[in-house]
Design a protein around this nucleic acid. Structure first.
Lengths: 341, 341
DNA sequence: CGCAGCGAAGCAATCGTTTTCCGTCGTCAT
DNA sequence: ATGACGACGGAAAACGATTGCTTCGCTGCG
């Protein structure tokens, strides 16, 4: 238990201490099919324990030519959406004996490309992209890096649309939003205001399209669609802008994510209006906070933790037969959209 | 740009392609003090670009004997407290060109010890412990692993009390809670109920002690202290239990974290009582949600992102002269604790 | 008693980089 | 013309592991 300063015990040390060869020590300590005699095994294990040996993962990775790493790319880890997702990924990785490294894109495509490239250096087994990507051309750099990654033998999993070498784990944003839209017309709403992210952000576009469709089917009318981002601040300022232009009593505001909707809620209150009865609000994702705000937020439940877990499985399972259909989503009606009589 | 299947370009490939030696290629591509002639440098860089070369970080790590990794240990990444903290850590790591690997302890000491050991295999430059540790003996396993880690030359940073080889980044939980307690007595509260985590969890103990002290100084009385955990569920069930036993109108409930307080808020409402005017509630941390619940939660602001950033700096700065004093904290009075007249 | 057969230990090559050391070459002062 | 010296390219030895192949010792059969 004497700690030699400045450096860890190596396999070599263990082998010497146990009086066996490097090869034998390796086979005992780090999984191998080959059997080694019980007496040797014991000696090696004791030596390892005595020296506090832990295999050097980097060295293992170079020797084996493959690492035990999964890389996760999210837009912002402080956002509860990504937090829950990450929790699922980490849980799965843990089960599989893998380690997760995390990087944040700050929703910047160029930065994302840089990060993918840097992450590539780790030669991870898989790369999970949770940062909502754009469809337009500024995603080209990312696409190229992704291809390079896949060509190297890495697995790429995207939340949302896949394509090419990319495995996709998708949720039915369109369907969920459509169901939400039509549920609202059933509650009596006829006038809607949508707070979305920039055009080209797939998740946002899908939710907007679905909502618009479902709402129109029930004779509702989307009066206005404002574009900002996925943050609380965007929700707040977009809503303030709308309020400035005038928002009729009885309108329902659809925030493209709960975080956005909560920003809107706050703006409505700050403008002296009443969220719920006066101006209704609904979101998407069902983050924990959505239950706790008042009025409680009507939203569409997305099983984020589970989604993260699936993404991880998609990244490591050899035979993976994607989910045929995107995961269906359930509408949760709460008091932020009271029935309109 | 032809992608050789199944394997990435190595430095060797680049060197051959450029017609120079391995050594030269290495010097050009991966930081080195030694100069190489401009003509060579260009050839190598072109070759690298053509082959899409990215250094193999594992191999670099074995060769250099040091990795570019920071390991982060949190209790639960889906918890906004840890999410914000992680954001700060990742931001700092990014600035320093490091990669963050994350592991979650699920608040289980044995698991934590196992994780530290596993993380040790990565030979990270630093290990940041954000999972609130216990003081009692079940932390012994962790302590031993930590020592082994430090003996290896790794930097260990703990949020909260340090000790030994462990660098500490501390916030003034006691002072903040004391200020909160006394602010509440100034608002007219005289009767308090505390919802804490298990005894031995330092953060919780400190906050409870501080609050009790501050509240008592203003002639307040802590009627009851209940122990559970740091989760919303714990807050909810503890509060329900208290309500079952009877809670006087005008009592203030102190949840040892915002998440706990929000659980309590919910329990109060579900029991048909009115949070705020009837039973006041306050928390600690100032997570974003605390602004958005109604009534808005009185709390103590903890600069979590900043704290994560500091922890990272502590992990990588060579000369680090700890903060002499724990970071002072500010009380935020909001409507969940209206003045009592 | 000899030898085939087999199970297991160990030698040595290998993984992709870094880094030390050596040797060459050009420059400049004498 | 010569020699000292500074730059800089390249060969080769690490780094800490894994793994294919050789070797060795033993058992059992003829």
């Amino acid at each position: 238990m004497v700690a030699q300063p400045r450096s860890a015990a190596t396999l070599h040390d263990v082998a010497r201490e146990a009086g066996v060869s490097l090869a034998t020590a390796s086979r005992v300590l780090n999984g191998s099919v080959r059997k080694v005699a019980e007496s040797y095994r014991e000696r090696v294990e004791e030596a390892a324990a005595r020296l506090g040996y832990t295999a050097n993962l980097s060295a293992q990775a170079t020797a084996r030519g493959t690492s035990a790493i999964i890389a996760l790319l999210v837009a912002d880890i402080a956002d509860p959406y990504f937090g829950q997702l990450a929790a699922g990924v980490v849980r799965g990785a843990d089960e599989a004996g893998l380690v997760v490294t995390i990087a944040i894109t700050e929703r910047d495509a160029e930065r994302e490309a840089r990060l993918v490239r840097a992450l590539r250096g780790q030669r991870p087994q898989g790369l999970i992209l949770a940062a909502s990507r754009n469809e337009d051309e500024d995603g080209a750099g990312v696409r190229a890096e992704l291809d390079a990654f896949a060509a190297m033998g890495g697995r790429v999993v995207a939340l949302g649309p896949g394509g090419g070498d990319v495995r996709a784990v998708a949720v039915d944003n369109v369907g969920g939003a459509r169901a939400l839209g039509s549920a609202l017309t059933e509650l009596g709403y006829r006038e809607a205001l949508i707070l979305g992210a920039r055009t080209g952000v797939r998740t946002s576009d899908d939710r907007i399209a679905g909502f618009t469709d479902g709402f129109a089917k029930g004779d509702g009318r989307v009066a206005l669609t404002l574009r900002g981002g996925f943050t609380r601040e965007a929700g707040y300022s977009l809503m303030s802008e709308a309020l400035g232009r005038g928002v009729e009593r009885g309108t329902v505001v659809f925030g493209v994510s709960d975080v956005v909707a909560i920003g809107a809620l706050s703006a409505i209150r700050d403008a002296g209006r009443e969220p719920g009865t006066d101006i209704a609000v609904c979101g998407f994702d069902d983050i924990p906070t959505s239950r706790d705000v008042r009025p409680a937020l009507t939203t569409v439940h997305v099983p984020l933790e589970d989604l993260g877990y699936r993404a991880l499985r998609a990244a490591i399972d050899d035979e993976w037969t994607g989910d045929a259909e995107p995961l269906p989503l359930d509408v949760l009606l709460r008091s932020s959209t009271p029935p309109r009589t």
